[in-house]
């Protein structure tokens, strides 16, 4: 496999949630890792930045960079699981 991008990626921001329009506690609860569920059909997909392995290298990926394209976001339980 070809040599990929620099492995020294900056820490990713995780969920990027606007506090406007949310209950006042929403921002703080995201920091604590107990975020309210914000994803609903017909509503904007909550933005995030995450570190990724892609094409042999490491990089940070932000969902909103894909605006203008169809995106499928698939969560899965874990690497090396059986299904």
């Amino acid at each position: 496999m070809a040599e990929g991008k620099d492995s020294c990626v900056k820490p990713a921001r995780g969920p990027i949630v606007e506090s406007a329009g949310q209950p006042e506690s929403a921002g703080a609860s995201v920091e604590r890792g107990h975020a309210p569920v914000l994803a609903k059909v017909g509503r904007p997909a909550p933005d995030f930045e995450a570190t990724a392995y892609y094409q042999g290298g490491y990089e940070n990926i932000r969902l909103s960079d894909y605006r203008g394209q169809w995106v499928v976001l698939c969560f899965y339980p874990g690497d090396f699981t059986f299904v």
């Binding site: 017909g42 997909a45 894909y66 499928v72 976001l73 698939c74 969560f75 339980p77």
Partner: peptide, 13 residues
């Protein structure tokens, strides 16, 4: 868990 979201070009789920 195994969640799958189809997001359109406007960023809407």
């Amino acid at each position: 868990v195994r969640g799958r979201f189809i997001i359109d070009p406007d960023g809407i789920i």
